[in-house]
Amino acid sequence: MSRRLPHILFVSGSPVDRRTIGACLAAHQFATTAIGRGRNALHELETNTVDAVVLDVANDDGSGLEACRRLREKGVLVPIILFTGSGDPIDRVIGLELGADDCIEKPVDEKELVARIRARLRIVDRGHQAADTYSFAGLRLNVKERRVTRPNGSSLRLTSAEFDLLAAFVARAGRKLSRSQLLDLMDRRTTDDAARSIDVLVSRLRRKLLAETDGGLISTIRNGGYQFTSDVNSIRGANAGA
């Protein structure tokens, strides 16, 4: 099965920009969702796997700066790139202070936009790859060895799918993840049957974790989805085997 394309959420009040930027990103192998209202961005992020947000300061329901602030306050961690007014440094300064990762002046050079998105995604990828092991609730998950171990060194028996699900959870502890997001993170095809299978898989994983820990680590989110609630520590490089 081919890997999914990076998914970019583009928010702009300009229908022309939504068409042209959307076409540009599609031509460079990005999946793109283009919307006009900043208030709808959080819904898109909660229901779909989004890898980065490109946010125009001008959108249909007010300032993109306010939308950026709301997303960060809600715990959205994906990269946010702002389109700001030409020659006006104030929006750039405020945007960065509100949590944007990068700013691009309008009119936007499409090649520069693509390069900046890719640069931000590389930073995220390096961060994910750097964590060899995660520790939580007395257990350790080793990504490279695909093992979960107890404090005494013995292994917790998990199926391949259960391990992939747990790895997706611990790498994004505290985030609300929909069924479709979990399927994407596990590199599994999104179908109705696959989405229902997530519920079964979560139930099995919960039982195994409950037998090893003091309490439930996976919470069910109202209106669909799950959240890994345990504190998780990332262990990198040489410290992973300590």
Rank of each mutant, 00 (worst) to 15 (best):
R19I: 13
G64M: 06
I94S: 11
D60G: 08
A27M: 12
T33D: 14
V76M: 10
T47P: 00
C24R: 07
P79E: 05
I81M: 11
D51S: 12
E46N: 13
D88E: 12
N59V: 08
T84H: 03
L82F: 02
P79W: 09
A27C: 01
P79D: 10
A58K: 10
V53H: 09
D88Q: 09
E66M: 05
A41T: 14
R39D: 14
I90P: 00
R92L: 02
D56T: 03
A52H: 11
G38N: 06
V76A: 13
L82W: 02
D88C: 06
C24N: 09
V50A: 06
I81N: 01
I21D: 07
D60M: 09
T33N: 06
G85W: 00
V53M: 05
R72N: 05
P79T: 07
E66I: 10
D61H: 03
A52Y: 08
G62P: 06
P89M: 05
A67M: 02
D88L: 00
R18Q: 11
H28E: 15
G85P: 02
V53R: 06
I35T: 06
F30H: 02
L45A: 01
D60K: 09
A26L: 04
R69P: 00
A34I: 07
V78E: 14
R18C: 07
G36D: 13
T33V: 03
G95W: 01
L42P: 02
I90Y: 08
G36A: 15
H28A: 08
S86P: 00
R92W: 00
A31Y: 11
L45W: 05
D51P: 08
F30D: 03
V50M: 07
R92P: 04
R92F: 00
F83M: 13
T20N: 10
R70E: 14
G38S: 13
V57H: 02
I81T: 06
P89A: 06
D61L: 04
A67I: 03
P89V: 05
F83S: 07
S86T: 07
R37S: 11
R19L: 13
L96T: 02
R69K: 11
L65K: 02
E46I: 01
D51E: 13
L45C: 13
H43E: 15
L25N: 12
R70P: 02
K74V: 00
R72S: 05
I80K: 03
L42C: 00
R69C: 01
G64N: 00
E66Q: 04
E73R: 15
K74H: 14
F30T: 04
A41F: 10
V78K: 03
Q29N: 12
R72W: 05
R72F: 08
D91H: 12
C24D: 07
N40R: 11
G62I: 07
I21E: 06
C24M: 14
A52W: 06
A26W: 04
V54M: 08
V53Q: 09
A23F: 04
T20G: 01
R37C: 11
E46F: 01
L82H: 00
A23V: 01
A26N: 07
D61N: 10
R69A: 10
I90W: 10
P89Y: 06
L55I: 10
V53S: 14
N59I: 11
R72V: 07
N48G: 01
A34H: 09
G38E: 09
R70A: 07
A26F: 09
R18H: 05
T49L: 15
R37Y: 08
A26I: 00
I21S: 07
